[in-house]
């Protein structure tokens, strides 16, 4: 079973995405902040894909992506970030930081699962 790591400071979004993923047969790992996620990555959590929000207090999504990419274990792991229509400029920034792709919020379950299918190996 593939494990997907979700990072979002919104409990609503964490819960809704993990519900969708759970129904689709994925295991999930969750963190409510960049700091918490980074700690888990540093301790070598075993995941196949990271999905992170960009806009978070403390360590934001872009910083998180940069830091995670620095860790050898996760050098080639697919990373998706959550974004909104209005944040086109941040897409470039996140891609430059090492993200693989993005999911535009609010996404339907199909959009979400299709995107995940695209990037998961």
């Amino acid at each position: 079973m593939k494990t997907i790591f979700l990072v979002d400071d919104s409990a609503t979004i964490l819960l809704s995405i993990s519900n969708i993923l759970g129904k689709a047969g994925y295991a999930t790992e969750k963190a409510a902040s960049g700091e918490e996620a980074l700690r888990k990555f540093q301790s070598g959590v075993k995941v196949d894909l990271l999905i992170t929000d960009l806009n978070m207090p403390g360590i934001n999504g872009i910083e998180l992506i940069k830091e995670v990419r620095k860790l050898p274990t996760y050098k080639f792991m697919p990373i998706l970030f959550l974004t909104t229509e209005s944040q086109q400029s941040r897409k470039m920034e996140a891609k430059a930081a090492g993200a693989s792709g993005w999911i535009v919020k609010p996404a339907t379950a199909d959009d979400l699962l299709n995107t995940i299918k695209l990037v998961l190996r």
């Binding site: 990419r69 080639f76 697919p78 891609k95 090492g98 299918k117 695209l118 990037v119 190996r121």
Partner: peptide, 17 residues
């Protein structure tokens, strides 16, 4: 591409769908 966590095969497989 690979360093961005993407695999060329993913795209081709997805295209197949």
């Amino acid at each position: 591409m690979l360093r961005g966590g993407m695999d060329p095969l993913s795209f081709i497989r997805f295209l197949g769908s």
